[in-house]
Computed example of a mutant assay.
Amino acid sequence: MTAAQTLFVLVGALALEATFGYPDWLYQRIGHPVSWIGRFISFLDKKLNRETDSSQVRRNKGVLALGILIVITGVIAWALEQFFDHVAFGAFFIALLASMLIASRSLYTHVEDVARALDQYGLDDARQAVGRIVGRNPKTLDAHGVARAAIESLAENASDGIVAPVFWFAILGLPGLVVYKAINTADSMIGHRTPRHEAFGWASARLDDFVNLPASRLTALLLALASIFTPGASVAGTLEAVARDASKHRSPNAGWPESALAGALGLKLNGPKVYGETRVEDAYMGDGKRDATAEDIRAALRLTTTAWGVMVGSLLLIAIILPG
């Protein structure tokens, strides 16, 4: 495919995902590509990550496991792209495959579920809803904390689950998207600083930081642009919060979309939080109010939806301008 064709296919993938998502009946029958990748990562972890090995050996084996994962997923994706690139309606099937690895519809639904629970069902249900999309302990959150957690998850996943897959597909086609999701899944499974994975998952965590770097900055830019078209959002607040706070986040990437969303909506996000029984200190993003509500969640959803629209419009414009 030419660069222009790649972007048109990407827009098609975004449209398919936004319209249909990934059907539950399909997931129940065959699972999901990310779950398939996850099973392979678990296999590599079981075979290569031995507690009797030294820390350096486990780190080296983690590099090896990551290399195997990238090569296998990349080759499979390249073969599929080459095959469909030479058959009738191949572009549609490539778009369909790509749509399975983008998560705008499911992200919107899960975050909206938190707002609905806060409005209609009470704190316990809201904690359960937010617990599906965050890693922290929801039992420690009051209603405002639940709302903030949902908005923070929306910001981070807008980058990791939407903008990053779009970016890597635009740059490297289906192989770029699939390899990105493989790296991201590896980080979520073995990239944490637990006794078992601190050494073995080191490479996955570091590479995930690297591949998410461009998307996190692009997400902040998209949110700033979307603020122009979203009533109640502040462009100046977005830019000010990003410039002041993004680099203070303990993650090299999450601070960009979180600070952008906080600044746009006049919120104060992030800060100390509890994962399991462990309290983690982190910097605040934004300097607005802390008492976020269900309406703030919906305002964040409106802003991010507008940002996705800006992204799609930009992709179409670039595709039209490019030759071929």
Rank of each mutant, 00 (worst) to 15 (best):
1 M>H: 09
2 T>Q: 05
2 T>Y: 03
4 A>I: 01
5 Q>D: 13
6 T>M: 04
7 L>F: 06
8 F>P: 01
13 A>I: 11
14 L>A: 07
16 L>P: 05
19 T>I: 05
21 G>T: 13
22 Y>H: 14
23 P>W: 12
28 Q>L: 14
28 Q>N: 15
29 R>A: 15
29 R>E: 10
30 I>Q: 13
30 I>K: 09
32 H>D: 12
33 P>M: 15
42 S>W: 06
45 D>V: 03
45 D>S: 14
49 N>D: 12
50 R>S: 12
50 R>D: 13
53 D>T: 03
55 S>H: 08
57 V>K: 15
59 R>T: 07
60 N>R: 14
60 N>S: 08
62 G>M: 04
63 V>C: 07
64 L>M: 11
65 A>N: 10
66 L>A: 13
70 I>Y: 01
70 I>H: 02
72 I>P: 06
73 T>Y: 00
74 G>L: 01
74 G>T: 02
77 A>G: 12
78 W>C: 06
81 E>T: 03
89 F>V: 03
90 G>S: 08
90 G>N: 11
91 A>R: 13
96 L>M: 15
98 A>G: 06
103 A>Y: 15
109 T>N: 12
112 E>D: 15
113 D>V: 02
113 D>E: 15
118 L>G: 12
120 Q>H: 15
122 G>E: 12
128 Q>C: 02
131 G>R: 04
132 R>D: 00
136 R>E: 03
138 P>H: 04
138 P>M: 03
140 T>A: 07
143 A>F: 01
145 G>F: 02
148 R>D: 01
149 A>V: 07
157 N>C: 09
157 N>S: 14
160 D>K: 08
161 G>C: 09
164 A>M: 02
167 F>Y: 14
167 F>M: 03
167 F>I: 05
167 F>W: 09
173 G>D: 00
175 P>H: 02
176 G>L: 00
178 V>Y: 01
180 Y>K: 00
181 K>A: 00
183 I>G: 06
184 N>L: 00
186 A>V: 01
194 T>H: 03
195 P>L: 02
197 H>T: 05
201 G>K: 01
203 A>T: 02
203 A>D: 00
203 A>H: 00
205 A>L: 00
210 F>K: 02
210 F>H: 03
213 L>Q: 06
214 P>C: 09
215 A>K: 08
216 S>L: 03
218 L>C: 10
219 T>N: 07
220 A>S: 14
225 L>R: 10
226 A>S: 07
227 S>T: 06
227 S>K: 07
231 P>Y: 12
235 V>C: 06
236 A>R: 14
237 G>C: 11
238 T>C: 15
244 R>E: 13
245 D>Q: 07
250 R>A: 14
251 S>W: 08
252 P>Q: 09
257 P>T: 08
257 P>K: 09
257 P>S: 08
261 L>D: 09
265 L>N: 04
266 G>D: 09
270 N>P: 00
273 K>I: 01
277 E>W: 01
278 T>D: 14
279 R>I: 12
280 V>P: 07
283 A>V: 07
288 G>L: 08
292 A>M: 07
293 T>W: 11
293 T>K: 12
300 A>L: 12
304 T>H: 13
305 T>S: 14
306 T>N: 14
308 W>S: 13
311 M>E: 10
311 M>V: 05
312 V>Y: 02
312 V>I: 15
316 L>S: 06
